[in-house]
């Protein structure tokens, strides 16, 4: 294990996690809003925003699924040291991290039950390029309409039809983060 495993956590855990959570809550409550999420310094293979998000929300009670592109020893060691979260299969995951195509198929994740739709997975979609805004969003958290860059349209439209079950998504790019909860209706732009 390299020394980097033990560094890169929150400098002041209680306060940094509180600030990070407010950013996370804000972007999930307002689909389309893009914010900076920093504080954690994960090893290579994980973006700053995704690493900080996992530090903020994960602990021994949450199973993490690492998609093949982020499933590296450094990432596992770093997450284990800082969160002690167990690594699980996609079917059991509370949080799944990876590139969009590496996370497929979406049907393998838990979408909750009719009585407990909250027992569902949250996907953290990493991207290395910032795409053009190709989707129009409507629903809770949005004043009339918002726009967002999404890696797909049809899959998110299908996810919304499962409501109140379904998956929630965070999109991370460097230290930027935005989110798409299951409650949002997505239509293609233009």
């Amino acid at each position: 294990m390299g020394a980097h495993v033990f560094s890169g956590g929150f400098a002041d855990p209680a306060v940094d996690a509180a600030r990070a959570f407010r950013t996370v809550m804000s972007v999930l409550a307002r689909p389309g809003e893009v914010q900076n999420l920093a504080g954690g310094e994960p090893p290579q293979g994980l973006s700053c925003a995704a690493g900080t998000l996992l530090l903020t929300l994960c602990d021994p009670e949450t199973g993490i699924f690492l998609a093949p592109d982020v499933d590296r020893a450094e990432v596992r060691d770093w997450l284990t040291f800082h969160t002690n979260a167990p690594f699980v299969s996609a079917e059991e995951a509370d949080f799944a991290v990876g590139g969009w195509y590496e996370l497929m198929p979406l049907t393998q994740y838990r979408t909750g039950t009719a009585e407990y739709p909250d027992q569902s997975a949250t996907l953290i979609v990493e991207s290395s390029v910032q795409g053009a805004k190709n989707a129009i969003l409507q629903g809770p958290g949005i004043n009339e309409r918002a726009e967002m860059a999404l890696p797909d349209i049809a899959r998110f439209q299908h996810n919304a039809t499962l409501y109140p079950q379904g998956l929630d998504f965070f999109f991370t790019y460097g230290s930027q983060i935005y989110a798409l909860p299951r409650s949002t209706h997505v239509t293609p732009k233009g």
């Binding site: 855990p13 209680a14 996690a17 509180a18 959570f21 996370v24 809550m25 999930l28 409550a29 903020t56 929300l57 994960c58 602990d59 009670e61 949450t62 739709p117 909250d118 569902s120 949250t122 809770p140 958290g141 409501y163 109140p164 929630d168 909860p181 299951r182 409650s183």
Partner: peptide, 19 residues
């Protein structure tokens, strides 16, 4: 404590996703 806050924060996020 931090673990309690994380548990509450996760619940808040689910609540916001399913208003």
């Amino acid at each position: 404590d931090e673990q309690t806050k994380r548990m509450i924060r996760r619940a808040i996020l689910k609540g916001l996703a399913i208003p």
